[in-house]
Design a binder for these strands. Structure first.
Lengths: 346, 346
DNA sequence: GTTAGCGCTCAACGGGAGCGAGTGCTAACA
DNA sequence: TGTTAGCACTCGCTCCCGTTGAGCGCTAAC
């Protein structure tokens, strides 16, 4: 026995209803409310029995309706992937409005984006920014702050990326620092932050007259490089949305979930994994995150200049409104790709 | 009838017990568990009846124990104020450890501090950083980014504060921008960010040869000034801690609370008000924030160089462990004052 | 292949009994 | 006059049990 066209329609009806109500769906509901092929509840009952045997439905207990299984959701999402309904002009305008203010800082951008998606979907949203080491240098400036201390300002395509204090030679004048900054900018422009350290080592000899400054510059860059290694900005939006769902009406469950969001570490790995395709779906235990057993997560990756940059993830109950989420994600991934691409063109 | 020494001891015992258990406290408990003056439950009963008449206790219903009123908490906190127990060396070491990494960015600093306090107290913690307009300029740099675009980097005593793009004259060379930057730094150093705009206007004539750059610089500073007007960094730690308390076991209540935290606007006003004393206590509706009716909030303000800079607030159920919270707050307020003062001395 | 109907199952709801923590009051005691 | 023991009373909480109703599987008829 395999799944046919009619079984599929029934399954869709069940999933749709369950997503809305969070209550086991009975055969009568499918027959009366969704009118699948005009079949009676008895026929639906037979088909549902088959769907259960095939592993698409679960029955919490004998006299209850049925509930979609993870396998069913996966099938459902797969069928949606090609045909994710476009957002209505109204919806996309609303999203755009929440983003409209010109974003200068990467952090602001992804925070706004996370909030916007959270609001549009009603679920918790997490966004990982581009990896720090992958950002491309635009300009580097050593700004004197006091006698012996200077601030290292590194401007990348995602705006001011990092600043570290460094010690300077006491007799290094502002002019000297300026000259060094210019040379560095000239020679390092376009490299990723990760590539700067090694290149600096190579430049060392040609800048021997500024040996001490170079020495502490290399130190500072090394420090930045190490810190930046797998650092990404992570933004969370709508964390409290999870409390809207009866799945998380238990305070303890909700708390472990929210604590997980606050800690950020899990989010980093969640958003890092599985970047091959455009969308990734993980259900329940597949996430590997404690406190997310009753959650599903869809991630979409975004790019800049064709390269993978980061990912947006929407986390909700397993019975998520996948169709709507997919369209919002698609919109936002495109928006971020464009915005980041533009800013790197700037 | 007024409150005497013995009534006070009984009241303290009741508050202590209620803070731990969240259950109405009966006369027998006070007598047996807290052994106040070795009195029997009958005597305690009489005293409790008096305390209720005086408005320090409430009775949820006839056959239940009694619950402290807001008036009682206020008295309780007042009595603690002078004598907030010091943190044990272990506790303060633990706090310090969570802060140890050298903080370069204000945002990192207050985020870490908020988390540390949240962890130490078990309650939600919010911290407001110094007002942007009050920060003092250390250095200003116009960093060329492309042909006509430059980045305005403003370094204050709280590290890199804001950067805005500005348009530059197409024939302004990096050297010119550098020279302008140096002059600006010389002349503006030590001013607060709020004072820069007006001063720039005054300098305009003396820099007429760089008229176009000055023009867009003034524009950019104006923009920054307006944006910064009442902008403060706000950090939240341990938002999910509220879910630990039966007062917030209702998902809807918890959600409005968490949504309020995410929106940040209320927090800004909460932390702005009442800076006169060192500590401020607000109970329930006094906060004026929807969703905080069952909360209390203690705020402590911190200073730098003697001036008020910002505030730390701990939000928990009305039956908060005030003693412990006060000592943690005292520690952290001092830490922030010192750290900010040091960085402004840097 | 589809449908009507019947009997069965089982979670959820609601009312009533019993329990127990806690009070107020009174009377006795130091 | 303050303290204490004792007793009757109150009232929320929990447990138990009967009822309800949604939903299923199965069978027989169309």
């Amino acid at each position: 026995m395999s799944i046919d066209e009619r079984k599929l329609r029934i399954l869709h009806a069940i999933i749709d209803d369950y997503i809305m109500t969070a209550m086991p769906v009975g055969s009568r509901t499918v027959s009366k409310k969704y009118k699948v092929d005009g079949l009676s509840s008895a026929t639906i009952r037979n088909e549902m029995s088959d769907l259960e045997a095939l592993g698409y439905l679960d029955q919490p207990h004998t006299s209850a309706g049925r509930v979609p299984s993870a396998k069913a959701y996966r099938l459902y999402v797969e069928s949606l992937l090609g045909a994710a309904p476009k957002l209505t002009p109204g919806e996309s305008a609303k999203l755009r409005a929440r983003l409209s203010a010109r974003e200068r800082q990467l952090r602001d951008l992804i925070e706004r984006a996370a909030r916007a998606v959270a609001e549009a979907t009603g679920y918790t949203t997490v966004i990982a920014g581009p990896a720090a080491t992958e950002q491309r240098l635009k300009s580097i400036q050593i700004v004197p702050v006091s006698e012996r201390v200077a601030l290292l300002v590194i401007v990348t395509d995602a705006a001011v990326f990092k600043d570290a204090t460094m010690n300077t030679d006491e007799d290094a004048t502002a002019e000297q620092l300026f000259i060094i900054s210019r040379m560095l900018t000239d020679q390092l422009q376009g490299l990723t932050v990760g590539e700067i350290g090694p290149r600096l080592e190579m430049m060392r000899s040609s800048l021997s007259e500024h040996a001490r400054v170079m020495r502490s510059l290399i130190d500072a860059m090394g420090r930045i490089g190490r810190e930046a290694a797998d650092t990404r900005e992570i933004a969370v939006g709508g964390g409290s949305n999870i409390l809207r769902f009866p799945e998380y009406s238990d305070a303890n469950k909700a708390r472990t979930f929210l604590t997980m969001l606050e800690a950020r570490e899990y989010l980093r790995t969640l958003l890092a994994a599985g970047q091959d395709g455009m969308f990734t779906l993980r259900i329940g235990a597949e996430t590997g995150v404690p406190g997310m057993e009753d959650c599903a997560m869809i991630t979409a990756s975004y790019t800049a200049a064709g390269e993978h940059q980061g990912a947006i993830g929407v986390i909700g109950p397993v019975r998520m409104r996948y169709g709507h989420v997919l369209s919002v994600l698609e919109f936002m991934a495109r928006y971020l790709s464009e915005t980041l691409f533009m800013s790197s063109e700037l």
